[in-house]
Design a protein around this nucleic acid. Structure first.
Length: 490
RNA sequence: GGUCCCAUCGUCUAAUGGUUAGGACGCCAGGUUUUCAUCCUGGAAAUCGGAGUUCGAUUCUCCGUGGGAUCACCA
């Protein structure tokens, strides 16, 4: 290879695609595939295509395309060509718009004598299948190839006539050298009776037309790769680089994550308060990792460090615990403004027990320290954990008893001492409140002073510290609550 | 069942012939200004089994075992 060739090789325009069928929402598994393909394209300053494989009208679900687009956009994955962005040369990225293209390629096979109309009815095919099973041998349609057939008029399915039955060996960017024998080869349908192509045919035609260089997909396609290879040969088109991604397994690690087994719509995670950056980071680390001990990567960083050779071969379980942790990591880096907005979303607008904006701003960092997502915030609110914000606490007098004391009454003189301190304190920040009380607390014993004060303000066994409570509540309310506690004990 | 693939703590993974097999999540314990939480420190926790190659296998080979994928006019 001379220098020119080398340069040419390096200058190859990388093109990847994500090609979902519009049969519903996208879940973690599908999106991870999209993420890897996108990362690779962006890293190589190539193109990323969103191709919609809508060749099965019966399975199509209304609104899926919009939903898929929303899901990718949420994560920050953009596409250069998609269902609404056709390409100047190859046209639409929606397969149902491309029927003529598939016919053109079918014609090539027909002309070569490498395709034939299937003469059998579905029932007859089923009989063949059952007979083969009864005889305990593999069912192969190519054994029923008709010797002669009419010209294809488009009313019957068109089958690929596998030219040579042989063993195929190929290289997968992740799995390395793979091979499969003759059993993996058969005459498969390329155009259905309704005129739509099958996946097996359409994706090969489109990848060629769209100049896709790297095909990234799940391992479910490995076993049909010999069929694809056979088609590439028949069509005389080059095989793109095949990249088999490991499956994402369900939480039990046994089965591939699927809608059937409860895989959630990606956008549910948005509603539940997961940050797109956290989700991207989490997804990137299932089935891939850069090798070091860092685990927190921004999208830009991922573009920089992503590499095909670090993709795992075996499947990885979807661990929601780790996602929660990841989300908290990202939450802790957000601005106060963001967090106020974040929490504000959870409280139903206009509800009576909703803190005002000033209170929310004070509350945000305190609440976020205790939760991983919006679901947990909602739970905390509903369980009354933040009732102290808007109503005077109700509690048993005995709760005012510090654990080292014998009775709650021991707290009385301490609260009486605290009252003037907290009354005249500066409510500018948590620290200014703290400094008004701290010396006394040190002198008397921290728990002795702070526990009853905290209970007086929150009425609860668990809560943020008393200084924070006071800061959120404000001087008037604090004084009233401490007085109320003193009354209880008197 | 045929074909193909995979195999390190419970989970995500690092280390590829030589390490006390490392990190993270989760779990447990201790500590940090009172409780909760945060934070810090520590701990328990893995190379599926058996042969072979080798001075030495987590790493290479083979055989088992286990798991997965696929065998559609679905993608």
């Amino acid at each position: 290879m001379n220098e020119t060739d080398l340069n040419k090789k390096e200058n190859i325009q990388v093109v990847t695609r994500f090609a979902p069928s519009p049969t519903g929402f996208l879940h973690i598994g599908g999106v991870r595939t999209a993420l890897f393909a996108w990362l690779f394209a962006r890293q190589n300053e190539g193109e990323f295509i969103l191709r919609i494989e809508d060749t099965d009208k019966s399975r199509e679900v209304e609104g899926s395309i919009e939903h898929i687009k929303k899901s990718l956009s949420w994560l920050g994955l953009d596409w250069d060509y998609g269902p609404e962005k056709p390409h100047d040369e190859w046209g639409s990225a929606l397969q149902s718009d491309r029927l003529d293209v598939y016919k053109k390629y079918a014609k090539i096979l027909l002309d070569k004598g490498l395709a034939y109309p299937d003469p059998y009815t579905a029932e007859e095919v089923q009989e063949f299948r059952e007979k083969a099973q009864a005889e305990k041998r593999p069912f192969l349609m190519r054994e029923h190839r008709p010797e002669t057939f009419d010209e294809w008029d488009g009313t019957k399915p068109l089958r690929f006539k596998t030219p040579t039955i042989k063993r195929f060996e190929w290289t997968d960017a992740v799995r390395g050298s793979l091979s499969a024998g003759e059993d993996a080869l058969d005459d498969f349908i390329i155009i259905k009776a309704d005129g739509f192509p099958t996946y097996n045919f359409a994706h090969i035609v489109d990848d060629e037309e769209m100049a896709v260089t790297h095909v990234m997909r799940g391992e479910e396609f490995v076993s049909s790769t010999p069929k694809f290879l056979s088609l590439y040969e028949a069509l005389e088109i080059p095989v793109p680089i095949l990249v088999t991604l490991p499956p994402i397994m369900g939480p039990d690690g046994k089965k591939k994550l699927s809608k059937r087994d409860g895989a959630k719509d990606l956008l549910h995670y948005n509603e539940d308060g997961y940050l797109p950056a956290a989700m991207v980071n989490f997804l990137a680390l299932i089935g891939w990792n850069p090798g070091g001990e860092d685990e927190i990567f921004s999208l830009d960083k991922l573009i920089e460090i992503f590499s095909l050779d670090k993709i795992q071969k075996s499947g990885g379980a979807f661990n929601e615990e780790k996602l929660r942790w990841m989300n908290k990591e990202y939450l802790s880096k957000q601005s106060d403004e963001f967090l106020v907005e974040y929490i504000s979303d959870v409280w139903v607008a206009g509800a009576s027990n909703r803190p005002d904006n000033a209170q929310l701003a004070k509350l945000a960092p305190v609440m976020l320290e205790r939760v991983h997502n919006k679901v947990e915030i909602k739970e905390a609110i509903e369980s009354g954990e933040y009732d102290w914000v808007f109503k005077s606490p109700e509690y048993e007098t005995d709760l005012l008893k510090w654990k080292k004391d014998t009775s709650a009454e021991a707290s009385l003189p301490r609260l009486e001492k605290v009252l003037p301190l907290i009354e005249t304190a500066d409510y500018l920040t948590v620290d200014t409140i703290k400094s008004a009380i701290w010396d006394y607390a040190e002198e008397e014993g921290r728990g002795e002073v702070l526990w009853p004060l905290r209970v007086a303000l929150s009425g609860s066994e668990r809560s943020p510290d008393p200084f924070t409570l006071a800061y959120v509540l404000g001087a008037d309310e604090v004084v009233a609550r401490v007085r109320s506690a003193i009354d209880k004990l008197s």
